[in-house]
Design a protein around this nucleic acid. Structure first.
Length: 155
DNA sequence: GCCAACGTTGGC
DNA sequence: GCCAACGTTGGC
């Protein structure tokens, strides 16, 4: 099993939105970055776990945990002209963008803030990509060590 | 709203 | 293939 971190802007989709979704489940669609696409398409496997990260908001941080329940498949929002993530250059016969389905496993009572994560950036979370300079990926791997440590912060 | 750090695009 | 211009991300 592998671990990941998925970013979302709570203004567009928050962990509370996921908690209210049918089956507490959603397609993680709208990702339009090739590196992130490759991970969604090829690397996230059923049963993998991911942190749900709230970005571009008042208090950025990890809000909870989700599980991959369906592996990479074409992202239908790319073909929908009404959708905000519509990509006119994509072709349904040769899909460019992919998504996975995730379900909510756990919503932290309080999110683990970016600030708090940074306090461990020189130590236990040295390998956390989220803390690296210039990181902008919305899908990124998390090492088992970092995963365990971050989960321990949530208690 | 600002701006640093990226990624993408397109002319050459 | 280079690189300037432009768009986006995301913390502040």
């Amino acid at each position: 099993m592998s671990f990941w971190l998925l970013k979302s802007e709570p203004a567009s989709f928050s962990i509370d939105d996921l908690a209210r979704a049918p089956g507490r489940r959603t397609a993680w669609d709208g990702v339009r970055n090739y590196q992130a696409r490759n991970m969604l398409r090829d690397e996230l496997k059923r049963g993998d776990r991911a942190f749900f990260y709230h970005s571009s908001c008042q208090v950025p941080g990890i809000a909870g945990i989700v599980e991959v329940v369906r592996e990479g498949y074409p992202d239908a929002t790319a073909f929908d002209p009404q959708d905000h993530h519509f990509d006119p250059d994509s072709d349904s016969r040769e899909p460019r963008w992919y998504t996975v389905d995730v379900k909510l496993v756990r919503e932290f009572e309080r999110s683990i803030t970016l600030d708090e994560l940074r306090r461990h950036g020189g130590g236990r979370l040295k390998d956390l990509q989220l803390l690296k300079r210039g990181n902008r990926l919305s899908v990124m791997p998390v090492s088992a060590k970092s995963w365990k440590f971050i989960v321990s912060l949530a208690r």
